[in-house]
Design a protein around this nucleic acid. Structure first.
Lengths: 156, 156
DNA sequence: ACTGGTTAGGTGACACGTCAACGACTACAC
DNA sequence: GTGTAGTCGTTGACGTGTCACCTAACCAGT
C-alpha cells in the first residue's frame, strides 16, 4: 500500500456514522449497565458470563472455550471469574482430563440471579435500542456488525 | 405500562443486531485503540480530548463545556485531564471570570502528537469500519446512532 | 450581609480490561 | 526418556471510568 501520509478524510456521512457510533456506544452501554446494576447488581460482562454458562452443558465450560466463544482474552475471563467467584455466582473446578485446565461452573445462586435479571435486561435492550428502530434498521445493524466482526476476526 | 414480568424476548434479527453490536464493539474498539497506542501512545479518549481541544478557540475549553460536548461526566474528564497533564499533552489554567472554573489547554506537544496520530487513526477507522460498508449501510448506521443518542439524551 | 440552593471541579475507592510475564502441564519429536 | 514447543490458566502492574462524596464558589431572594 502506497501510504501518502494523508489518507482520505471522512466525508459528512462517514463522519456522522463514526462519531454517532462512538456516542451511541457511550450512552447506550452506560444506560444498559446502570439498569442491570440497579436490578440485580450485575455488570454487563457478568450477565454475559452467566448467560453463556446457563446455556452450557452441565452449566460448566472450560475457561478457554468460554473465552473463545465470547471473544474475550483468557486473562480477562480469568480476572472476571475470580471476581464473580468471590460473589458466589460461579465456581471453578479443575479438569480431570487436562491438568492445566479448569471449568467454570454456574452456581445455583448465579442461576437464580440470572433468571431474576433477564426480563429487566431484555426490556432495557428493547427500550433503549431495538424498539427505537425499524425492521430495516435492525437488519442493517446486524449486517454491519457481522461484516466488521468477520473482518476483524479473520485478520489475526 | 402493564408489566407482565415477561417482556417480549428478542426475535432472530433483533438478537443478531444486539449481539452483533456487542461483538463489533468489543473487537473494533480493541483494534482501533491498539493501533492508536502503537502509533503515538494515545488511547481513544486521549485522542478525543486532543481533537476537541484543537478545534476550540485558543486551544482551550472550560472543563464543564468540554464534558458536555463529549458526553462525559465531569469526574471522568477531570481524571483523564490529570493523567494527560502528567504526560504533558494538556495543561490546566484557572478561569479569571469564575473562581470555580478551570480551562483545559492544549500544549504544543499535545498538538504535535495529535497531528502525528491523526492520519493513522483515520486510516484505521476506514480500514476496520467505513471502507467495509456500503453508502447505504453507513447512512443507516448514522441514523441508528442518532436515534439512540437522541432517545438517551432526552431522558435524563 | 445571610442563607439556601446550585454549579464547577476534584478525590478516593472500586470494578474493569490490557499487556507482559509466569508456572504448570501436554504433545510431539528424537 | 528427554528435550522443546506450545497451550492453559493465573497473576501483577497499570490505565481507565463509575459512583459517591467533598469543597469552593456563585447567585438569588431576603
Amino acid at each position: 500500500m502506497a501510504d501518502t501520509g494523508v489518507p482520505r478524510w471522512l466525508d459528512e456521512d462517514e463522519f456522522r456514522a463514526w462519531i454517532g457510533y462512538r456516542r451511541m456506544k457511550a450512552l447506550l452501554d452506560l444506560q444498559i449497565s446502570r439498569e442491570l446494576a440497579a436490578n440485580q447488581g450485575l455488570s454487563e460482562p457478568d450477565y454475559d458470563v452467566l448467560t453463556s454458562l446457563s446455556a452450557a452443558e452441565d452449566r460448566r465450560i472450560r475457561l478457554s472455550e468460554m473465552a473463545e466463544r465470547m471473544l474475550w482474552s483468557k486473562s480477562r475471563l480469568s480476572h472476571h471469574v475470580t471476581r464473580m467467584q468471590q460473589r458466589g455466582l460461579v465456581t471453578r473446578k479443575e479438569c480431570p482430563s487436562d491438568g492445566r485446565g479448569a471449568f467454570i461452573v454456574l452456581t445455583d445462586a448465579g442461576m437464580a440471579t440470572l433468571r431474576a435479571a433477564a426480563p429487566g435486561h431484555v426490556a432495557a435492550v428493547r427500550e433503549h435500542l431495538i424498539d427505537l428502530l425499524t425492521e430495516e434498521q435492525i437488519r442493517v445493524l446486524g449486517e454491519v456488525a457481522d461484516t466488521v466482526v468477520e473482518h476483524l476476526r479473520s485478520r489475526v
